[in-house]
Amino acid sequence: MIGVVNNQIDKNTLELLGKANQMAVKIQTQVCLFIIGSKELKVDHVKDYADLTVLMLSENFGRFSLYPFLINLEKAILKYRPSILLSPATTFGRTIMPALAARLRTGLTADCTDLDVDDKGNLLQTRPAIGGNVMATIITPNHRPQMATVRPRSFSVQPEKREGRVRIEEITELEDSCELIKIEKREPSAQIDQAQIVVSVGKGLRRKENTQIAEKLAQLVSGAVGATRSVVDAKWFSHDHQVGLSGKTVKPKVYIAAGISGAVQHIAGMQTSEIVIAINKDRYAPIFKVADIGLVADAYSTLEQIVKILEDESDA
């Protein structure tokens, strides 16, 4: 059985179920969705993406707290015994999965961007490895379940295909030493490692105010804004925007490097992107060596032109 774990029913869940179904066909097994979360969650529209949906819902599960979730999930995993267990690489998945792996004494691969199964049932877990264009494939040969967190948007949603069963598990309540005392909602901002299009800026934008054009472009294409270390150091952007060795490794469909010369540290964080577009005044800038399309021009005015074209067309 291939299991998918999440605390909400969202696109991440459907993407993982899509991949799980593909792999399940290959090794002739079933797909089980484990949903642990708020009482309000409705599974009607997702249950047919899995053979079985196991629900662990409680009014106390509105926000994630490790041990109440861990104890109940562990119980369900031991009951249904999936040989593979997947979760999105979100703050939830990145916290619950290592905790489960520790309890189950099994392996866990973080942040996979591709998955497959071989004919022996080994989960082939592929992720970007240290520093750039190296990918590593990892297996968990002798421990079960084989666990992986998967970057959002690594897979596409596949059509549903069956009448899925739903089972409701009884919840074990326990005293929690963590207490949520305040919650302040924030605008869910596109995380640079989860966006399909990343517009990154470097010092070639010249001034902080000029980076607004990159934010505008990112907004128009539903992407996220990335940044080089030097502009993060200059406080143009906070650190969670930084792409590169001391920031994040990104792998979007389209990466735009605007006004970025291409230090090795930066290139290491973006070169596995599918299409790279570089905009730089200096035609000998190293960034062009890792780009598919290079625009030799001023970064600000070029972004401005691109934004204008996209805006004009959406108005029309």
Partner: peptide
């Protein structure tokens, strides 16, 4: 529990199509 079974390079070099001047 885990083993790295393969390490490989992706897209080593790209053929950059450069646009400048009147082609921009």
């Amino acid at each position: 529990p885990t083993r790295v079974v393969k390490v490989y390079n992706t897209k080593l070099s790209r053929n950059c199509q450069l646009y400048m001047g009147k082609d921009l």
